[in-house]
Design a protein around this nucleic acid. Structure first.
Lengths: 401, 401
DNA sequence: CTTATTAAGTCAAATGTATTGACTTAATAG
DNA sequence: CTATTAAGTCAATACATTTGACTTAATAAG
């Protein structure tokens, strides 16, 4: 008689969900358009003037938005634009990479206020956890020194590290990131910091950053192709980061290419790891970026050869991304020297034909994104901000508390 | 002073949006789990018993759900399960293919009640429009003969045809589907039928069908690889069909493969069109499927060779889909003879390694889906049903009326 | 300079949904 | 036979948006 297979259903919603959504819509509108009057917000969101006024009062009370000077524009009472208050919220972003870990503190509009990095000793979580917790604590206290009350307005800690997560036999990475995969990182960090902790792979983090302050700002369908030690794609679909069933969507580094009868993961051909190997560079060298910049400026043959080979693979990856996702634009970014990304983009063009070729395009098919060692940490921090303030289906539902 | 670049913002929501969502959640829960008591619904949806009762009263009044016999299960008052009423809603689905057009009428639970097909004369829309409108009218009147009041409960007309839509230079298809692309089909059909009309490519339609009554039932992350005259992928992401920025997401037929230094669209190698060409079959032959079944049963060498070549490309496509989307499962379906799909699946296995290999998998990585000439028309009809009754973010918003 | 017009924004009452807590109904366990 | 458990209802309440009238403050027109 115990017929208890669990019942699967989506969550319902109620007034609080409605209100939460409308607040997020306001914040989103101000983020995309800059400061807006309440009348403009009402028109844009389909809500009534009264509702908008009520919500703005609340948001102002919460310190998230503030009025600017009244604007006269033609007849009628001047409007009072409201804009986001950068100090309205903060988040900590943490990047855990192979040899280094970086932490940043960002505010509501995505400005980086504090940044710190530390070398990550080999040995995995056993030795690394303390380094990381100290780094986060350091950034936090520095932030508290820069702005008062920052602790109260801290919405969470976002972590970015190379994926994929939870996959069998991902131990073929010679580096010991595998050890981190086993380790209960989120729980440890949550316990050690008292913050809400979220996890993304680094391509997803890069995409989150591009959406908040970069080339994907205001876009609902964009793919960030991220060239780092590995390679991955961060997916913005329907205005939200898409993670797939297990958070591993976009992990294209493991995609197998077939050429000359052999199969190779994309990662082995188009990633900084492959560049380092190609040029016999030491990934742990602190002057790595300077060294690469030097090679680029000297038009070194070795790096040029790598760029051309990688560009061919990237050209095809972009073609596939366009074909599969039909995005508004593709953004090429990376934790690589900016000059390298520029050279890659130059070498990639012209793009392969695809469904992205359509009349009335306004955005370029391929755009450069951030190429900055700190962009992943920024994206990691953007995660909690986005989760707390961007309109999302899940935020309406009762089971999101 | 005219600073009027348009303001971009997402729509807000209100009580009606809440209510609409909760109704959809109920219907969805009953679709996935079968009949449920109001108490079960309340627990599963996080709503209160009272709210669920109120909504069920409304849905029953609207003829969408109905009570079943009370069930005693242990102590306490017996529960009254409510289930979907199949006759609660209907939709017409229309498939426009190269040589043929098919129309079906389906009910709320996805049962096909009426089906009719007609040959599509060459000449494109100028001659085809009348054939199509007659076919739809025929199905509609047959439906009215089978169930009373069907017209009142008709939620729309869903159209499926080969994509992609609105792309430059899609005229390299020798067949004249291009002419259909230019034609204002939706407007013509809306005017000619008085129904709401929606459009999908045929892979998306197949995915919609699989989600309503097939292998993707109850799944929120699934990809349907659809082998038809062309090849495409229908994407179920976050429980909704994903169309991309322009409705062309998943149009992988145009994906270029590189082998032997040449590039070929996937469609030229793994699609029925390629099979027909390989075997010199006439795509317009009405006995095509029987002929293929015959070749299969005779283990014909030519078809065997095609199967092995196509399977290699499909194996790699599935690998790529798993890598990029991280779905719960991949479904292989098609408007091909069922035996052919079975043989393809057999020839595809074993799958390439990918991030889909993880501990705790419950679903197979690859599953067979519908292989039925009518599945696209069914999916076309499932479109309006899904749009009307499935929980979706857009359905909450004010700008969805 | 005066008046009409336009637009932003507020006020107070009304509306629509979900929630709350007490209550009723109806079964089984002991 | 009684206690217990669970489904479901009733009536009042809470919460967020909406409505329509009103106020404020500017420019345009005569």
């Amino acid at each position: 008689m115990n017929d208890s297979r669990p019942i699967r259903a989506k969550s319902g919603t109620n007034h609080e969900g409605t209100s939460a959504h409308n607040r997020r819509v306001m914040i989103d509108a101000l983020r995309i358009n800059g400061a807006l009057s309440r009348a403009d917000l009402a028109r844009a969101t389909w809500l009534t003037k009264q509702t908008v006024s009520n919500i703005i009062v609340e948001l102002e009370h919460d310190g998230l938005v503030g009025p600017q000077e009244a604007v006269r524009k033609g007849r009628g009472q001047p409007s009072t634009p409201y804009g986001l208050v950068p100090e309205g919220a903060f988040a900590i972003g943490l990047q855990i990479d192979r040899h280094v870990t970086r932490a940043v503190a960002v505010d509501l509009v995505g400005s980086v206020l504090v940044r710190e990095e530390a070398g990550l000793p080999p040995g995995g979580p056993s030795t690394g956890t303390k380094v990381i917790l100290d780094l986060v604590a350091g950034v936090r206290s520095k932030l508290a020194g820069v702005v008062r009350q920052s602790e109260k307005r801290l919405v969470g800690l976002g972590v970015a590290m190379p994926g994929p997560f939870g996959v069998d036999g991902s131990g073929d990475d010679p580096w010991m990131m595998a050890a981190w995969q086993q380790f209960p990182l989120l729980e440890t960090l949550a316990a050690g910091t008292g913050l809400d902790v979220g996890l993304q792979n680094d391509a997803a983090a890069a995409a989150t950053a591009e959406r908040m302050v970069g080339a994907a700002h205001g876009l609902d369908h964009a793919v960030c192709l991220f060239v780092g030690y590995g390679i991955g794609a961060g997916l913005i679909l329907n205005g939200e980061l898409y993670g797939g069933a297990n958070g591993n969507a976009g992990e294209i580094g493991m995609a197998l290419l077939f050429a000359d009868g052999k199969s190779t993961p994309l990662e082995h051909r188009a990633s900084l790891a492959s560049l380092y190997q190609h040029l016999s560079l030491d990934p742990a060298d602190p002057a790595l970026h300077a060294r690469i910049d030097d090679l680029l400026s000297r038009n070194d043959r070795g790096i040029q050869a790598w760029i051309e080979a990688a560009a061919a693979d990237l050209r095809w990856s972009i073609h596939l991304i366009e074909t599969v996702f039909d995005p508004q634009t593709v953004i090429l970014c990376g934790s690589a020297p900016e000059a390298l990304v520029e050279r890659l983009i130059a070498a990639i063009g012209p793009l392969l034909p695809s469904i992205a070729e359509r009349r009335g395009r306004t955005l370029p098919r391929l755009q450069p994104g951030m190429a900055d060692p700190w962009s992943v940490a920024l994206g990691a921090a953007a995660g909690p901000i986005s989760r707390a303030f961007d309109p999302r289906f899940a935020a309406i539902l009762k089971d999101s508390l």
